[in-house]
Simulated scan of single mutants.
Amino acid sequence: MAALVEASDLKKIGIGLTGFGFLFTFLGLIFFFDKGLLAMGNILFLLGLALTIGPRSTLSFFLKPRNYKGSLSFLGGILLVLFGWAVVGIFVEAYGFFVLFSGFFPTAAVFLYKVPVLGWFLQQPFLVSVINSFRDRRVPV
């Protein structure tokens, strides 16, 4: 029997802020690169990440030598969005997000396989080959 992991209140708030960060970013994209929504999404995502894994772990994640390229792209994209270059900033940020978090995509995919309707959709042959290509590119820790 698997033991349940109890999350602290700060981690619950962090997960909520991260979710709202994704929501605001999505809404910013839907509303034709709205600078305000994109900036709020970025700020909420970073705050949520810091509360979820801790400020020290967040800094060490972004400052690892193998993550420099992704960190610079991601944080540079956030700065571009904050300074008003929303379209360019979101593409730079998306590249950095992909480089930084691509190692976590297979873990997220395993979780999403268990969601009733979404799991069936993700098990289609084309998507399985795409997900497996991410699994093959992971860098060993």
Rank of each mutant, 00 (worst) to 15 (best):
M40W: 14
V88W: 15
F61T: 06
S129L: 08
K114M: 09
D136K: 09
L37M: 10
L29H: 12
K64M: 10
V117W: 01
Y68D: 12
F104G: 04
Q123M: 09
L127F: 14
M1P: 11
V110M: 09
S60Y: 14
S129Y: 15
T52G: 10
S8M: 06
V115I: 13
G21D: 00
F26E: 10
G54K: 05
V128T: 09
F22G: 12
F31V: 15
F45Q: 08
E6H: 13
G84H: 03
V5H: 12
V92M: 07
F121I: 13
K114T: 13
D9C: 15
V141L: 10
K12C: 13
R56S: 08
V99A: 14
L23M: 05
F111K: 13
T52D: 06
F104E: 14
L38Q: 02
L23E: 00
S73G: 05
S60F: 04
P55I: 12
A86V: 00
N42D: 03
G103I: 05
L10V: 15
P140I: 06
L37T: 01
K35L: 10
V130D: 07
L38V: 04
G103F: 09
F74R: 00
V117K: 09
G36T: 02
I30G: 03
V139E: 11
F111R: 15
S133I: 05
P106Y: 06
S8H: 03
A94T: 09
L46Y: 11
Y95R: 07
P106K: 09
F91P: 11
F32G: 07
F61G: 05
A109P: 00
